[in-house]
């Protein structure tokens, strides 16, 4: 499972990176989203998979999956949400103010 997860994460990273390298701002944001999914899955995978029950006491399980990565991912998800929201709004503001969402046209070296 870990191996296949690693490959999946790799693919997610590949796709995300490709999207980030394109010119359109929206694609870039989507790319960061995909990468963050990849990161979250990676943290989970790195914590070890399926080695026990869910980290809730008082149920049937006696062993638990690694709970620390889960807490980390939770934090990461929320932070990522915050950043994505800001980024999204910024990008549409950029589009509305500057009239383009093409990163190639946002070079800004012309004013030298």
């Amino acid at each position: 499972m870990e191996t296949s997860m690693s490959i999946l994460i790799g693919v997610l990273f590949t796709i995300g990176t490709y999207l980030i390298l394109t010119k359109s701002l929206l694609r870039i944001i989507l790319g960061t989203s995909i990468i963050s999914h990849g990161v979250n899955l990676l943290i989970l995978t790195m914590g070890g998979l399926k080695s026990g029950g869910p980290p809730l006491l008082g149920q049937h399980d006696t062993t638990f999956t690694d709970s620390l990565p889960q807490a980390l991912i939770l934090t990461a998800i929320v932070i990522n949400f915050a950043v994505t929201a800001l980024f999204l709004v910024l990008s549409y503001r950029t589009y509305k103010t500057l009239g383009t969402d093409n990163m190639d046209q946002l070079r800004g070296i012309e004013d030298e």
Partner: peptide, 8 residues
Amino acid sequence: HHNPGGGF
């Protein structure tokens, strides 16, 4: 506190 859930 005891089940999935919480502030978030």
